[in-house]
Computed example of a mutant assay.
Amino acid sequence: MGGVTSSSAGGGGGGETALGDLPESCVAEVLLRLDPPEICRMARLSRTFRGAASGDGVWEAKLPRNYARLLAAAADGEAAALEAAEAIPKKEVYARLCRRNRLDGGTKEFWLDKGGGGVCMTISSRALSITGIDDRRYWNFIPNDESRFHAVAYLSQIWWFEVRGEVEFCFPEGRPLKRLGRRVYSSEHIHGWDIKPVRFQLSTSDGQQAQSKCYLTDPGVWINHHVGDFVVKSSNEPVKIQFAMVQIDCTHTKGGLCVDSVAVKPQYLAKKKASRIYFLVRSVKTVQESHSVLSIEVSTNK
């Protein structure tokens, strides 16, 4: 059996074989079986590994099939981006798509998960349809350092609670929190969520549906609430996802709640077989941070 040293230099003396002596094509075959962070670490081993780790063949295998469409979306739909996707080195395409790419006036953003190449998306509360949002007796947008969009929709009190949203996007086929903002509300503002459950709904343009319900209780604890599963059937066809959180029983008021954003994440982050919908729920029980926080998370991780 021939010996292979751990030297990163090429052309080892004394007849020994060094890492730099391995054919770049062989190294590329190894890298194809690694995830992107591992590929970047392996690139440090030798010049041969560095060359293989920059190859288009390695990185194209890590990109979603519809990466050209995603690059165009990141460029705000510019047609030139589709052509650029073929000219740009695939490693650079991957890096560009891993950045936070804003859409629709900054109310949505998407990016590739660096570890697995799946598409994630967040949707600001400003992009949601919220009943009564224009009446400051019920709702206000307030600054919040915890939000990725730097603001949340705060509900003071309302009888008819309804939050809906939708997004249409070419999702690929399945392959620590800061403190809250400075605003403080009395704990007496949190009310009505333990009387009737909130209903969560999901539907897609190709007929998939799911729904569930839960009581928004347990102050001070973040809860990923599973709403339902959906499967992306084609990377080249946009799928429209509609989602809702409602509590429209008008026998009592409810309030003391913030809506932050919606997130869509690929299934492998939850190690499940389909994309999943979750609502992330939190209420705060300390006097200094005494308002409920609800972050709607359409997600695959729990």
Rank of each mutant, 00 (worst) to 15 (best):
M1W: 06
G3T: 10
S6V: 07
A9Y: 07
G14R: 11
A18H: 14
A18T: 15
E24A: 15
C26Y: 11
E38I: 02
G51S: 15
D56H: 14
G57F: 04
V58C: 09
R69C: 11
A74W: 02
A75C: 06
G77A: 09
L82D: 06
A85M: 10
V93E: 04
Y94M: 12
C98I: 02
I123W: 06
R126F: 02
S129M: 11
S129E: 10
I130W: 08
Y154Q: 10
Q157A: 10
F161A: 04
V163G: 06
V163Y: 00
V167N: 07
P172K: 10
L180V: 08
E188P: 01
W193H: 06
V198N: 01
F200I: 10
S203T: 07
T204H: 04
D206G: 05
A210C: 04
Y215W: 07
T217M: 05
W222D: 05
H226P: 06
H226R: 09
D229G: 15
D229W: 07
V232D: 01
Q242Y: 02
Q242M: 06
T251F: 07
H252T: 04
T253I: 04
T253W: 03
G256S: 05
S261C: 14
S261A: 12
K265V: 04
S275F: 07
Y278K: 00
V281Y: 03
S283G: 00
T286E: 01
Q288I: 05
Q288C: 07
H291L: 13
V298T: 13
K302Q: 11
